[in-house]
Simulated assay, not measured.
Amino acid sequence: MEKSKVYFTDMHVTSRENLQQKLTRLIKTAGIDQIDFERKFAAIKIHFGELGNLAYLRPNYSKTVADVIKSLGGKPFLTDCNTLYVGGRKNALDHIDTAYVNGYSPFSTGCHVIIADGLKGTDEQLVPVQGGEYVKEAKIGRAIMDADIVISLSHFKGHELVGFGGALKNIGMGCGSRAGKMEMHSNGKPSVNQQSCVGCGSCAKVCGQSAITITDKKASINHNLCAGCGRCIGVCPMDAVMPASDESNDILNKKMAEYAYAVLNGRPHFHISLVIDVSPFCDCHAENDIPIVSDIGMFASFDPVALDVACADAVNRQPAISGSLLEKNGHSHKDHFMDVSPETDWTVAIDHAVKLGLGKKDYELIRI
Rank of each mutant, 00 (worst) to 15 (best):
residue 148 D to V: 09
residue 148 D to T: 08
residue 148 D to G: 07
residue 148 D to C: 11
residue 148 D to N: 14
residue 149 I to V: 12
residue 149 I to H: 04
residue 149 I to G: 02
residue 149 I to K: 11
residue 150 V to A: 00
residue 150 V to E: 00
residue 150 V to K: 07
residue 150 V to C: 04
residue 151 I to W: 05
residue 151 I to N: 04
residue 152 S to Q: 03
residue 152 S to H: 03
residue 152 S to I: 02
residue 152 S to G: 05
residue 152 S to R: 08
residue 153 L to A: 02
residue 153 L to Q: 05
residue 153 L to W: 08
residue 154 S to G: 06
residue 155 H to I: 11
residue 155 H to D: 06
residue 155 H to S: 08
residue 156 F to Y: 14
residue 156 F to P: 15
residue 156 F to Q: 11
residue 157 K to Y: 10
residue 157 K to A: 03
residue 158 G to D: 07
residue 158 G to L: 09
residue 158 G to F: 05
residue 159 H to P: 15
residue 159 H to I: 13
residue 160 E to W: 01
residue 160 E to A: 00
residue 160 E to L: 02
residue 160 E to Y: 00
residue 161 L to N: 14
residue 161 L to P: 14
residue 161 L to D: 08
residue 162 V to W: 03
residue 162 V to C: 10
residue 162 V to N: 09
residue 162 V to I: 10
residue 163 G to M: 12
residue 163 G to H: 10
residue 163 G to D: 10
residue 164 F to S: 06
residue 164 F to Y: 14
residue 165 G to P: 15
residue 165 G to T: 14
residue 166 G to N: 13
residue 166 G to Q: 07
residue 167 A to R: 15
residue 167 A to G: 12
residue 167 A to C: 14
residue 168 L to F: 09
residue 168 L to Y: 09
residue 168 L to P: 15
residue 168 L to S: 08
residue 169 K to R: 15
residue 169 K to E: 11
residue 169 K to H: 13
residue 169 K to W: 13
residue 169 K to T: 12
residue 169 K to F: 11
residue 170 N to A: 03
residue 170 N to K: 14
residue 171 I to C: 01
residue 171 I to S: 01
residue 171 I to T: 06
residue 171 I to K: 06
residue 172 G to I: 06
residue 172 G to K: 12
residue 172 G to W: 05
residue 172 G to L: 08
residue 173 M to P: 15
residue 173 M to D: 14
residue 174 G to K: 09
residue 174 G to L: 05
residue 174 G to C: 04
residue 175 C to H: 09
residue 175 C to Q: 10
residue 175 C to S: 10
residue 175 C to N: 13
residue 175 C to R: 13
residue 176 G to I: 04
residue 176 G to F: 01
residue 176 G to M: 04
residue 176 G to Y: 00
residue 176 G to V: 02
residue 177 S to M: 02
residue 177 S to E: 03
residue 177 S to P: 05
residue 177 S to F: 00
residue 177 S to G: 00
residue 178 R to F: 04
residue 179 A to Y: 04
residue 179 A to N: 08
residue 180 G to Y: 05
residue 180 G to P: 12
residue 181 K to N: 05
residue 181 K to S: 04
residue 181 K to T: 06
residue 181 K to P: 12
residue 183 E to N: 07
residue 183 E to R: 11
residue 184 M to F: 06
residue 184 M to R: 10
residue 185 H to N: 14
residue 185 H to C: 15
residue 185 H to D: 12
residue 185 H to T: 11
residue 185 H to P: 15
residue 186 S to A: 05
residue 186 S to H: 09
residue 187 N to W: 06
residue 188 G to I: 07
residue 188 G to M: 11
residue 189 K to A: 03
residue 189 K to S: 03
residue 189 K to P: 14
residue 189 K to H: 04
residue 190 P to A: 01
residue 190 P to F: 00
residue 190 P to S: 01
residue 190 P to T: 00
residue 190 P to Y: 01
residue 190 P to V: 00
residue 191 S to D: 02
residue 191 S to P: 05
residue 192 V to M: 06
residue 192 V to D: 02
residue 192 V to G: 04
residue 193 N to L: 03
residue 193 N to M: 01
residue 193 N to C: 02
residue 193 N to H: 06
residue 193 N to Q: 01
residue 193 N to Y: 01
residue 194 Q to P: 12
residue 194 Q to E: 08
